[in-house]
Design a protein around this nucleic acid. Structure first.
Lengths: 233, 233
DNA sequence: CAGCCATAGATTGTTGACAATTTTATCTGT
DNA sequence: ACAGATAAAATTGTCAACAATCTATGGCTG
């Protein structure tokens, strides 16, 4: 999942694997382009151009756009067209406020429901991240963090919480994070992750939730600062 | 919005008003059929049949189904097809747990952000509902309740909270509520609504949130009981 | 008779063309 | 030169046919 990958693989469609539908592949490709900013925020999206770019027809392309609309990565207006979502400080704060509440909830549920296996895997992830950090490997930083949060959310055992966070909110979040990326504060962040995991392991949902909300607040400040700098140019 | 309406108007498409797209109208029609149970939970959905039923082609129909999938009213499997979502006690509880947290959050935000105008309208809604209740008019009960919750959520001023609750969660919720409808407990419910509104008016988000979460828990119990009865037949 | 394979039917996925609408460019009059 | 109306171009919405995939039926083999 978070393996190294030729960048082209993310923005190109291979027509070979027929397990997935063309619409799914187009979705992946377009979404990645948007999150990375290759399709600039606010820029217009042309269905035909996109379809041509990926060598498919407009049908699957439209389906992909529909999904991107639900993920708030684009804004569609009937009979007019679609634009890539704009980034704004207000929305960033709104997004993080909701995220904070939901991931806090995820922690409380995870503290009650997590399985021994999931806990072991979570700890193993911590170890490997600390190791990677010690070796100065900053490449997987971003993905590693996302991985951590995903696992906690899944450990909550709540299908709807999962769908809401991972299926809806996180796509837009990743866009903000990718485009307003700082070199982060990996040492601190990973230490905080470790604390949260241990609180969950202790079954102390209240503490885990508190720590998670603070951890996320740190991330918000970081991203907000970057976005402000970006917008003042 | 919550006006009386010929039932047919909900399940039929008029091709006249070209402001909306066919996909939108199909979405409305199919969604209503599902929520009402005219399309039974678990039953298979045939694209061609649906398209024919509404006199449109499969294109817009597919788009509608895509949206219904995101709203969790149907489950789609690539190359296989779509089925109407099944109702289960576990999911009901999961759904309400999330709803409870989110609407609690909405109350806290509303207590801080609500505008005088919105507050006036909210109180007016309470008045009209109490009046309708006094006259024994039980017809708008369900819609009235939904109206109340929508207004609080909108008063929160959080776009993402709004989208998550109204745009995603509430559709499925309405399905549960419609199909597991009890004669409700209108007197109590409306009294509870009134208390929540006053807490918000006082700027006491903490109290409003608490009251709301309890109010929702009552609703959950009610629906759960009905669903259990329904499933034991 | 049970279980597996092959074929036929039905359903979904995809395509390219057409219709409806919006956007852009052009023209006219003041 | 500018504002508004008109026509042309571009873009989205819709359709019907075709291709790919799944499901069901029937026959075959053990």
């Amino acid at each position: 999942m978070s393996k190294p990958m030729a960048l082209d693989a993310l923005t190109t469609i291979d027509k070979e694997t027929p397990a997935l539908t063309l619409a799914d592949k187009a979705l992946q490709a377009i979404q990645t382009s948007i999150i990375k900013g290759e399709l600039a925020p606010g820029s217009k999206i042309n269905e035909q151009m996109l379809a041509q770019r990926y060598g498919i027809s407009r049908g699957p392309t439209r389906e992909a756009l529909l999904t991107l609309e639900r993920r708030r990565l684009i804004v569609r207006v009937p009979h007019v067209g679609a634009r890539v979502a704009q980034l704004s400080i207000d929305e960033l704060n709104d997004l993080y406020r909701l995220r904070s509440v939901l991931e806090g909830m995820a922690c409380e549920l995870a503290a009650q429901h997590i399985t021994p296996t999931a806990l072991i895997q979570l700890r193993r992830l911590m170890d490997s991240q600390e190791e990677a950090l010690a070796q100065g490997d900053t490449y997987f930083q971003q993905d590693g963090d996302v991985d951590f949060h995903y696992r906690i959310i899944r450990a909550s055992g709540s299908r709807h919480l999962q769908e809401t966070l991972i299926g809806n909110l996180y796509h837009l979040l990743r866009m903000y994070r990718y485009q307003c990326t700082s070199e982060a504060r990996p040492t601190k962040a990973i230490a905080e992750h470790r604390c949260i995991v241990e609180a969950i392991a202790d079954g102390d949902g209240e503490l885990a939730s508190l720590l998670m909300r603070r951890h996320i607040e740190q991330g918000r400040r970081n991203t907000e600062k970057r976005l402000k700098a970006l917008q003042e140019e």
